[in-house]
Design a binder for these strands. Structure first.
Lengths: 209, 209
DNA sequence: ATGTTCATGCGATAGGTGTATCATGACGAG
DNA sequence: CTCGTCATGATACACCTATCGCATGAACAT
């Protein structure tokens, strides 16, 4: 057992709670000092637990759990489109609902990319778990390469960067933005299904095999 | 005529050149001091010309002109897919070729979004000009609403945010990333063409040819 | 209770941003 | 050439990040 586990856990929680509170109050980009003060902890300690302020924000935002994939897909059939729409709703409703937190998250991702910190970043990649879960009925029916293509193309329709693109760059409102994501998603799924048909899976075309 | 126009133009150029030089040397995120020193200008002056370091970077990156839409589309027929692939190539080749500059650009966009500066940001939205130019043959054949959907969905496949998503979050290499963007683009175009067929426009049949 | 360990607080340091003020002196019109 | 204008440089300030070394004292084993 680690030396002072409880104490450390308490401190960590305190910092995370403080960060979360600040975010909820609309501070999009809290400083380390703010967080430390709020957590009743010295600045040095805050740095001992998190690499930076945006690191803490990152943890908070990404730990505010979304409905997990299994739950989002409970009772869903094999209709890939419906499955994807469900997870898209979970992910994007969440993000478009909290643009501040989302942009702070974005910022953290960018920071990591800039200083080349090599952490695999399992959290930011979480959207792929949702996509994979939704795509599961199709898994065996596409070549590995095709599947990669589809997964990553779908990743372009969900996630924090989409918020930046549609809200900030294209200046859409959240509702219109959601229309766009579902449209794009539908298009990609349709293309994927066409790929499935093209290989073994499907009967219906007068195909030249 | 403004008071000391030439002097000011010279100073401005000097700062931009310095910024560009630093970027080309691989400094992804140059500080104001670095830029000012390199430009043989005091820090205060640098701030008189640009709001921030990333502002200067932004100007540089976005002014390094891409092939303009008309040129990219010269000699292209009415095949919307081909047209879009051309502009996608122009935009994304450029961005994936200079991830550092791109991320600095990203950073600037985010900064603007965070402090809510209301500038319309014609530069970041430039990708829509490319998309519109490529989409031109389809313009009259979709309802305004459908057209908006298609335009913005396509915007998800080009631009700086795509770099962040595919390179940083999904950890693809540039070549694989380009495969993904062209795939997604193809899917969206296909969907758009289906919309065209669904309304009056349908000229040629589902060519199993 | 006693001593060690280790998380913490405190303060200093080094560097970055962004703003303001003020003297200087180059510019350019007369 | 002269003189006022105005871009510039210098400097200071407030605040931020990120890191360091050192003293303190709570936590824990003995």
């Amino acid at each position: 057992m680690a030396p002072r586990e409880n104490q450390r856990a308490r401190t960590r929680r305190s910092i995370l709670d403080a960060t979360a509170a600040l975010l909820d109050e609309g501070r999009a980009d809290p400083s380390i000092d703010e967080i430390a003060d709020r957590a009743l902890v010295s600045r040095a300690t805050a740095y001992r637990y998190f690499e930076s302020a945006s690191d803490a924000v990152w943890q908070v935002v990404s730990d505010r759990s979304l409905t997990p994939p299994e739950e989002a897909l409970a009772g869903a059939g094999d209709d890939v489109t419906e499955r994807l729409l469900r997870v898209e709703k979970v992910v994007n409703d969440y993000l478009f609902g909290d643009p501040n937190g989302t942009r702070a998250f974005e910022r953290a991702v960018l920071g990591r990319a800039l200083d080349g910190s090599g952490t695999p970043d399992d959290r930011a990649a979480r959207r792929l778990h949702y996509i994979d879960a939704a795509l599961e009925p199709l898994a065996g029916r596409l070549s590995p390469h095709e599947l990669e293509l589809v997964r990553h193309a779908l990743a372009l329709t969900m996630g924090s960067q989409v918020v930046t693109t549609l809200l900030d760059t294209c200046r859409l409102d959240p509702a219109a933005a959601r229309d766009v994501t579902t449209f794009a998603l539908g298009a990609i799924v349709a293309e994927a299904l066409r790929l499935v048909d093209a290989r073994g899976g499907a009967p219906q075309l007068p195909e030249a095999s």
